[in-house]
Design a protein around this nucleic acid. Structure first.
Length: 510
RNA sequence: GGCUGUAUAGCUCAGUUGGUUAGAGCACUCGCUUCAUACGUGAGGGGUCAUAAGUUCAAAUCUUAUUACAGCCA
């Protein structure tokens, strides 16, 4: 019952990992971690898309075989996962045997059910985009025909298999209608619906112009179209085609396919159609998030303003980067990365608000309570703020079920603000001279708040959250959400508090 | 060209079914505090809610038009 299967798209290995990849996977990582702490059995999948003509050509250019090439570049994405502390349970590569088997089985099912037929395809083909364009879509530039994306096109006539997508229009519209949350956010849902309403053409699902791909069963001339190959990865990881195996039974259909807004159509139109045609269950939800701009400008290779997650982590810190990406903008919208905003989040929210709260409370415990968490005598006010903090879990849970990461963090920080006010109102430094028992209770309450904040923040900023919990000596097994209603134990000795979120200080180089 | 959205404080945005003086964070000004990472806290200034017309006892919220921007499609 309590299973949760979440996926990132598989990333095309020909690209270098950038902030967009990190962002998609980060969102999934937070949801995966949250669900695990909330008692779910989680399967979190990411991976790399390694086929296609571009990969074949890149490998040729380097004079190595494509497999060797993808072995190398795929590693960049596994490195990114390590760097960003992603907790994926599997990392799929489309060049793996298990994946080829899955693709071929899915194909056979489609064929068996009569949804695939062989025909001829002719049209303007772009190698770069791996897509066909109609005459009317092309742009004329200096007498040369170019794809709308600016890529070169060539007239190609080839034999191709087709998937009868046109027959699925009504069923898809019914699906969207009956499941209002199937596509999120709303704006993307509208787009997809209007796209489907405009009418669907059968989809060319094989290629003969190159060979680096999954072979079509019983016809070696053809390899599968990129999206049939790529989308199937969501099944591969669960052991498909063995539908009787435990993983498949447990996790399929996926609870959430997280995608960037550029590939919503493949996930919200083609994928459900392919699944329905092959008799498989459908995923429950597709969420398309927005894109980042850099200091207000669109990010593009030609502008040279691509943001490398490695740079961010090195410069601002891992959890600072994770926090910023999730806190700064509402998920689903585009967002702007600016140096100033990044620094402001790092210093205001992390260093000042929560970091300093931990530091000011625990320093007093360290200096005035012989480093021992005091015995409390809680009054209504103390209990109130502790309960507010505990109840925050429910808010965060509701927010995350809708992928509202920024609201979740906002609700935690609201309590952090209350916590700092609590310290000011109760002024334990004054109680030091007048009422040691009361001082102890106030400091205990602060410790309890640190415990709750630490537990709540684990999905977002796992390293820092675990440092927070370490500071007050919370045992590993008492850090799940079930434990949030426990109480901080008195009499436990703590170490000298360490700064968790250092302030970011401007470097001379600007 | 068609469709769908967006337009609210200097900046980034929230504003549920129309209902009292339009909210938050950052930035700014002034007070308080000194435990803490020069950190915290309180108060304050700042908005003709894109423009115009309309519906209504009442509009940031509904309708229409215009302008700007974004996305999707062609």
């Amino acid at each position: 019952m309590n299973n949760y299967y979440i996926t990132t798209p598989i990333y095309y290995v020909n690209d270098k990992p950038h902030i967009g990849h990190a962002y998609t996977s980060l969102a999934c990582d937070i949801l995966a971690r949250f669900k695990r702490l909330d008692g779910f059995d989680v399967h979190f999948l990411t991976g790399t898309d390694e086929h296609g003509q571009k990969v074949e050509k890149s490998a040729q250019a380097k004079n190595i075989n494509p497999q060797e090439f993808t072995d190398n570049v795929s590693q960049n994405f596994r490195d990114l996962a390590d760097l960003m502390n992603f907790s994926n349970d599997d990392f799929i590569r489309t060049t793996e045997n298990r994946h080829k088997q899955a693709c071929q089985k899915l194909w056979q099912e489609l064929e068996k059910n009569g949804h695939i037929y062989l025909d001829k395809y002719s049209g303007w083909y772009s190698v770069r985009d791996e897509a066909y364009y109609t005459e009317s879509e092309l742009i004329d530039k200096d007498g040369k025909k170019l794809a709308p994306t600016g890529a070169e096109v060539e007239w190609v006539e080839e034999e191709s298999y087709f998937f009868d997508l046109s027959k699925w229009q009504d069923k898809l519209l019914k699906l969207y209608d009956e499941n209002p949350d199937f596509i999120a956010p709303k704006s993307r849902r509208n787009e997809v619906i209007s796209f489907v309403k405009d009418g669907l053409k059968d989809l060319s699902v094989s290629r003969t112009a190159f060979s680096w791909g999954v072979k079509v069963p019983n016809n070696d001339k053809h390899i599968m179209y990129v999206w049939v190959d790529a989308l199937t990865n969501y099944l591969t990881t669960l052991g498909y085609p063995d539908e009787k195996n435990k993983k498949f039974e447990k996790y399929w259909g996926a609870d959430l396919h997280m995608v960037g807004k550029d590939i919503i159509r493949f996930h919200a139109v083609y994928w459900p159609a392919l699944l329905m045609a092959s008799g498989l269950d459908l995923p429950k939800r597709i969420f398309a998030h927005g894109w980042w701009t850099n200091e207000g400008e669109k990010i593009s290779k030609s502008l040279g303003n691509v943001i490398d997650p490695v740079d961010l982590v090195e410069k601002y810190g891992l959890d600072q980067t994770r926090y910023f990406l999730m806190r700064e903008i509402s998920f689903g919208n585009d967002g702007d990365f600016s140096r100033q905003a990044m620094i402001s989040r790092t210093n205001s929210d992390l260093a000042n608000d929560i970091g300093n709260f931990c530091q000011r409370s625990l320093s007093m415990v360290f200096k005035n309570c012989e480093s021992i968490i005091p015995n409390p005598n809680l009054n209504d006010g103390d209990n109130e703020i502790i309960n507010n903090a505990k109840q925050c879990l429910e808010t965060v849970r509701l927010n995350l079920d809708k992928q509202e990461f920024n609201k979740a963090l906002e609700s935690i920080w609201k309590i952090v603000g209350q916590a700092n006010k609590y310290v000011d109102d109760n002024a334990p430094w004054a109680l030091k001279n007048t009422d040691l028992d009361r001082m102890g209770t106030v400091l205990y309450t602060c410790g309890e708040l640190i415990r709750i904040f630490g537990i709540l923040l684990q999905p977002f900023i796992p390293n820092s959250a675990s440092k927070m919990l370490d500071l007050i000596a919370i045992p590993e097994e008492q850090r799940t959400f079930k434990n949030i209603n426990n109480s901080l134990q008195s009499g436990v000795k703590i170490d000298k508090p360490q700064v968790i979120f250092p302030r970011y200080v401007e470097q001379d180089d600007g």
